[in-house]
Nucleic acid binder design. Structure first.
Lengths: 180, 180
DNA sequence: CTGAATTTTCAGTAATTTCTGAAAATTATA
DNA sequence: TATAATTTTCAGAAATTACTGAAAATTCAG
């Protein structure tokens, strides 16, 4: 499978961004190819399109599965496994949110909680625990809020995101609103 | 400067998380020490606390400055430069949001826009552009929404985050609410 | 200015991460 | 159940990233 110049350039860009997104270059490239191609792809096609080894593709697919970013499909009469991305980009975004929360927030929340259970052994420790408490409360809020978003329908998410500056106004009015 | 067991264990944790947060181990550790210590720290103290070379600290501080995560202070009678983290963890969170948007979203938005300007040269390209359009619109929304958050006061942000399941209710009522 | 204190830079090295090919494991058809 | 197709694993190699010490640059008190 050969990529068109259009896809090629985006695939390269996703590769460069991959590491910034908590993936890595190959994973970024692989996902770009899968997202941009309408038909389901098998490992050999990905390997050829990106000029990387079959085994590398296998490892990459394993990782993309662990991120829940790809869907496995079977094509009648073909023993190979084929993969697609979800059709709805909102779904993809929500999945990324879930997974990044799991990887970037949850372990730290645990760690902060542990630290709060320790007995402070000096005034320095007391200060540290105070900051730990603040970080913990903040991350807890972000975490539960992100859980909230994860359970919203794409439509509702879109509504929320398009509010723009309306958001502030709504917040000002929220007490009035929630009383009912 | 020697770290207490309490700080030590969190510093190690932040080090491990560093790379997942788009920093790296040393940067994560450095920031943990700075956040958890009440008094401003100079490069030598950080170097000693983390057992890393002075030059490594220098590079790390440069990077933390580029992230706007630390504040430079001068102590009367001392020529060294001292650093602290913002007192308000919400400020830190907002800064992280700004910087990650700049690094993780903005370049891709540019790239997606470029791709949309290309002339599709096949039906495959047309499909690709359709997905690119969806990704672009989504990322644009997230980007401008995050800009919205960046300009909110900590208090308002806290209100928003504590809404929890109230969020959905508010969204349902928003049309009614915004008419006024 | 001068020079001591401090910070920054950077080439080389060390550590980590990613990638490959070969072999092992799994799967599914006949 | 045997075997051919396919996927996965993994040890070593390659590539990338991070770290160090020495030297250069900067800063500032006298």
């Amino acid at each position: 499978m050969k990529l068109s110049p259009l896809s090629q350039s985006l695939v390269l860009h996703f590769g460069e961004m991959g590491s910034r997104w908590g993936l890595n270059r190959t994973l970024g490239q692989m996902y770009a190819v899968i997202v941009l191609t309408e038909s389901p792809l098998n490992a050999d096609q990905i390997s050829e399109a990106l000029q990387i080894s079959r085994s590398n593709v296998s490892m990459g697919l394993k990782e993309l599965k662990s991120w829940n970013l790809i869907k496995l499909q079977h094509i009648p009469g073909d023993r190979k496994e084929y993969f697609t991305a979800p059709e709805d980009v909102w779904e993809i975004a929500k999945t990324l949110l879930v997974e990044r929360r799991k990887r970037e927030l949850d372990p730290t929340l645990t760690s902060l909680r542990d630290a709060l259970l320790q007995e402070p052994s000096s005034s320095e420790d007391e200060y540290a625990q105070q900051r730990i408490r603040e970080m913990h409360d903040l991350m807890e809020m972000i975490s539960s809020w992100s859980g909230e978003l994860e359970n919203m329908s794409s439509g509702k998410l879109a509504t929320l995101l398009t509010l723009g500056s309306g958001l502030s106004k709504i917040l000002e009015a929220k007490d009035r609103l929630l009383k009912k």
